[in-house]
Nucleic acid binder design. Sequence first.
DNA 1: TTAACATATCATAATATCATGATATGAAAA
DNA 2: TTTTCATATCATGATATTATGATATGTTAA
Lengths: 124, 124
Amino acid sequence: MENNNLENNDEGVCEVFNSHEDAVERVKGRMPSEEEYAELSEFFKIFGNPTRLKIISLLAVEDLCVCDICDALDLNQTTVSNQLRILRANNLVKYQKEGKMARYSLTDLHIEMIYKVGLEHILE
Amino acid sequence: MENNNLENNDEGVCEVFNSHEDAVERVKGRMPSEEEYAELSEFFKIFGNPTRLKIISLLAVEDLCVCDICDALDLNQTTVSNQLRILRANNLVKYQKEGKMARYSLTDLHIEMIYKVGLEHILE
DNA sequence: TTAACATATCATAATATCATGATATGAAAA
DNA sequence: TTTTCATATCATGATATTATGATATGTTAA
C-alpha cells in the first residue's frame, strides 16, 4: 500500500544488477500502452472458457445458428446465448438475422489463427 | 437440473430446422476432445490477465530476470513471481538459474505468435 | 557463520466469472 | 391476434482469480 507512485526501488530489488538497466530500457521502449494491454487481456480472456472455445471451434468449421450450436454442444440455450453475447461484445463473432434465426460466424481470420496456434501448442 | 443426460431436445430448441442436422454432424466431427478443450481454455486463460500479458510482451523482446521484469513493469516482486509461477506451470515461459538470478524466456514461438496476432486484432 | 539479496510460496480478502432459472423480445405460423 | 419458436437479457448463488502481505528458500558476499 505504501510508495505506490515511486519508482520500483522498494525493497532493494536487484540493485546490484545495474548492468540490466539497458535491457529494461529496451523492453520498456517496445511496450504497448496500458489501455492496449487491458484491451488485449480482455480479448484473450474470451478464449479462456471451454464453452466459448467450443463455440469458436465450431464456427471455425462453418457458420451456424444458435440452435445448431446448442445441439452440437449439448448445452441449453441460455448458456449458449449468454456466451454468444460475450463473444459478440468482444468482437470475436458476428451474426446476421435470417427470419427468427441468427446465423453466427467468426469476425475474422485472427480468431481462427489464435485458436489453431493454441491447439497446436497444447497438442505437441 | 432435469434431463441432463438426454439429447438436447429440451425446450424444443430449433426442432423445425432438421435441415441443419447435417451441419451439426459436420462440426461435431471436427471437435477436439473434452480434455483438449479444457487444456486449451486453461492455456488461453493465462493470456487473459494484464500483468501476465505484460510479462509475455517483455519476454517477446528479450529474456529477462525477475528483477528486470519488476523494474520494467513497476510491480512488486511477489506479484511478478506469482504470475511467473502461473506462466511456468502452464508452459508459457521457461527459465534457467544463473547464480541467485532466474533468467526467464518464452517457451516457444507459439506464445509470441498468439500475442502478436492478438495485438494485431485489437489494433485494427 | 551471518547478512543481504533474488526469488518462491502461502494465506486471504476483494473482485470477477460461471452456468442457469426466470423472463422478455420479436418473428412467423396458425 | 394468439401461439409457438428462436433468441436475448436479467438476476444470482457458487466458484475462481486477483494482488499482496507475511514468510520461506537458497545463493553469494562479508
